Computed example of a mutant assay.
Amino acid sequence: MVAGGHVSFVPLESAPSRRYQAGDRAINKAEAAVIRRTFTDYLAGKPSRTIALELNREGVPAPQAR
């Protein structure tokens, strides 16, 4: 999923050790968990507004432009 129009990645230095090339990416596991939760809630019938309000109430940061 692309949250807020941005794909969530971690810097390569934080990714598991291996040889990297320009353009390689690693998934940000913390942000991926929020994305999975969002999809799960939505597929369970929860309105997107409710999902957003819950995430805000829990202090989950909104996507940032990079």
Rank of each mutant, 00 (worst) to 15 (best):
M1Y: 06
V2Y: 08
V2K: 11
G4T: 14
G4S: 13
G5V: 08
G5L: 09
H6Q: 14
H6F: 13
H6T: 13
V7H: 06
S8A: 12
F9K: 01
V10W: 00
L12T: 04
S17F: 14
R18H: 14
R19N: 14
R19K: 14
R19H: 13
Y20G: 03
Q21P: 01
A22K: 12
G23Y: 03
R25G: 00
R25N: 00
A26V: 02
N28D: 10
A30M: 10
A33W: 02
A33K: 09
V34Q: 03
I35Q: 07
I35S: 09
R36C: 04
R36L: 09
R36F: 06
R37E: 13
R37Q: 10
R37P: 01
T38A: 14
T38N: 07
T38V: 13
T40H: 11
T40R: 13
Y42I: 11
Y42C: 10
L43V: 11
A44R: 04
A44E: 06
K46Q: 12
S48L: 15
A52K: 12
L53Y: 10
L53N: 13
E54C: 11
E58L: 15
E58Q: 15
G59F: 05
P61G: 08
P63F: 01
Q64P: 04
A65H: 04
A65Q: 08
R66L: 11
R66C: 09
R66N: 08
